[in-house]
Write a protein that binds this DNA or RNA. Structure first.
Length: 590
DNA sequence: GTGCGGGGCGCG
DNA sequence: AAAGCGCGCCCCGCAC
């Protein structure tokens, strides 16, 4: 550490940039920044690199597994002998030299990983990694402690209320499937079952999305209604536990002159197979409830505002473009109401518009957003039924055959998309056994690997055909998970990966053109920044409020939307679009 | 007591 | 011919 500090000072004197590389930088750099007050100019995480390059093969990115996989050495085990000991204890136990050798070996292994990947890891992706690390290491959000405290009480009280309405039920009776089933039987309701897709065994149909639970919601016996409401309320524990956690974080005392109430956003670089980010530190900040006070609790500090923008229907747009469904691409490019158009032309065969036909348009929306990856009619039927109930507040029951008609309408209306599944289907055996070097749009299909336009790859290790009763099924191993692959899922993987590439191309451009403003958070198709600015609110005659933005935030918001709408160089005809907003907190800006 | 898989649920 | 997918966390139930 001492040599580092001296090195940093020397480098700064020479006007040089300072780079620090470590394995698990998210942890190490937080120590460096929060304990020692030092934030390197560039942070490189060999664990992040390993997640992108090695995890698909090993299922683990610990220093030990990566070193073993690359054949660069063996991680020591001295740490296990000294854990919990102080320096004097380690010395008196005669372990000091061994511990020093162990620590140096860790450093050597990290250096070897970096040497192995430095030549072919895309330089731009190192900048992405640095942006992602900074969301946690130099937090830009402040937590609203009062709001969190009130919300926690509200959530707890709501649960107590649900429990009270059931009479005698306890939390255990609600949470356990068997006990909840008994409770239903006691009220004269025989619980329905469904077949588990994973085990093939029968299991209770107790999910929020199950039709059985929806039917009980309208049961004549109010006790049954209360029981079901309580079960569903208690099953969603996420809101309560996470509010508690954010509240605890908001009460932390930060070292030095950092003040208090900061919220680091921990994100795993390349956490997903498709290189999307994922959550970390037992905290998933990418799935905060829409409209939840948790979003509003993330505030910009005084003098700053939250700027948010998201790429509109980016996956559906990428699907249309990759498949060569030119009419759909053109409609997206003109920013037409695709959902209404599809519902009118291919489902209902009469004009549909947003204002007069919300249900028809909802079906169109579900189709455009969901049917590009090969979903079949049974799944589409249940999805529309359940999503309409939860999102629209009114259940749409298409009937299995009605759902089938929508699926057929999609596949016939956009015939190039099922054709793309077939094209990809045909590539799978080639990718398994050989090295086809075929292009699918901007992606190059190689042996058990697809090279993306940003230089990263999607990996399909151990891609083989498994014989099942239904015929040959292609499977691959992603780390420890076994996954099926066919044209539809393949297109989904490619699309998700390309959307991720587009999103960070915009973020990289912002980093270059607005170097002082750094990414605060990222949620797949959405970029979030906290930048200097000021808001004024104007009351309109119709009761709505119009927000006026002043200061740097204004120009930044326009650039953010413009960059997310700009097609990448590898796909100049992709019809991208974006919308964005500014607020005093994440909830308002969204 | 701990580890693990399945189901459930939140987001995209 | 048919097949949406990508995460993380919570809890239960079961194996050890």
């Amino acid at each position: 550490m001492k040599s580092y500090l001296i090195g940093k000072r020397d480098a700064q004197r020479r006007g040089e940039k300072f780079v620090v590389i470590s394995h698990n930088a998210l942890f190490d750099m937080c120590l460096l920044a929060w304990r020692f007050g030092i934030v390197p100019d560039l942070m490189i995480d060999t664990m992040g690199i390993a997640r992108a390059k090695v995890n698909a093969f090993t299922g683990s990115v610990s220093l030990a597994s990566v070193a073993k996989h690359l054949g660069i050495g063996v991680k020591g085990d001295t740490i296990g002998k000294v854990i919990g000991m102080r320096k004097a204890d380690i010395k008196s136990a005669g372990l000091w030299d061994a511990y020093a050798r162990y620590a140096c070996n860790d450093g050597d292994l990290c250096r070897e990983i970096w040497k192995r990947f430095r030549k072919d890891f895309p330089p731009q992706e190192l900048l992405v990694m640095d942006m992602v690390l900074r969301a946690a290491i130099t937090p830009r959000f402040k937590l609203n402690q009062d709001l969190l405290a009130v919300h926690l009480n509200t959530v707890k009280a709501a649960k107590q209320d649900l429990l009270a309405r059931t009479g005698i039920m306890s939390k255990d009776d609600l949470m356990s499937n068997d006990k909840f089933a008994d409770a239903l039987r006691a009220l004269g309701v025989e619980p329905e079952t469904k077949t588990s897709p994973t085990t093939g065994k029968a299991t209770y149909a107790f999910a929020k999305t199950d039709a059985f639970m929806a039917s009980l919601d309208e049961h004549p016996n109010p006790d049954v209604q209360a029981l079901v409401a309580a079960r569903l309320g208690f099953k969603s524990t996420l809101e309560e536990t996470r509010t508690q956690r954010l509240l605890t974080i908001s009460q932390l005392t930060w070292p030095g002159n950092l003040g208090s109430g900061w919220m680091p956003i921990p994100l795993k670089y390349s956490g997903a197979h498709t290189h999307r980010l994922s959550g970390d530190w037992q905290l998933n900040m990418q799935n905060l409830g829409r409209g939840s006070p948790l979003r509003s609790s993330l505030e910009a500090p005084d003098g700053y505002v939250v700027v948010v923008a998201d790429a509109s229907q980016i996956e559906a747009r990428l699907v249309a473009w990759q498949a060569g469904q030119d009419d759909l691409v053109a409609s997206f490019a003109r920013n037409e109401d695709i959902y209404s158009n599809f519902a009118g032309q291919h489902v209902y065969h009469r004009p549909v518009n947003k204002k007069d036909h919300p249900k028809e348009r909802f079906v169109g929306k579900q189709a455009i957003l969901g049917l590009g990856y090969g979903m079949g009619k049974p799944k589409f039927y249940t999805k529309v039924k359940s999503d309409s109930r939860l999102q629209l507040g009114e259940e749409i029951d298409l009937g299995i055959e009605g759902a089938g008609a929508v699926v057929d309408g999609y596949r016939k209306g956009f015939a190039q998309i099922p054709k793309a599944w077939k094209t990809l289907d045909a590539l799978i055996p080639q990718m398994a056994h050989g090295d086809p070097r075929a292009m699918f749009g901007p992606c190059e299909v190689r042996h058990q690997e697809v090279i993306l336009p940003n230089g990263l790859s999607l990996y399909y290790p151990k891609l083989t055909q498994e014989v099942t009763p239904r015929g040959g099924q292609w499977v691959f191993r992603n780390g420890k998970r076994i996954k099926f692959l066919w044209g539809g899922t393949f297109l989904e993987n490619l699309t998700q990966a390309l959307a991720r590439v587009c999103n960070f191309e915009a973020a990289l451009r912002l980093r270059k053109e607005f170097p002082r403003f750094r990414m605060a958070h990222q949620v797949h198709d959405e970029l979030i920044y906290v930048v200097p600015g000021r808001l004024e609110f104007e009351q309109l005659h119709n009761g709505k409020t119009k927000t006026h933005v002043f200061g740097p935030a204004r120009e930044f918001r326009d650039a953010l939307i413009a960059f997310l709408s700009t097609p990448p160089a590898w796909g100049p005809a992709i019809p991208l679009a974006a919308e964005g907003d500014v607020g005093l907190n994440y909830g308002d800006a969204k």
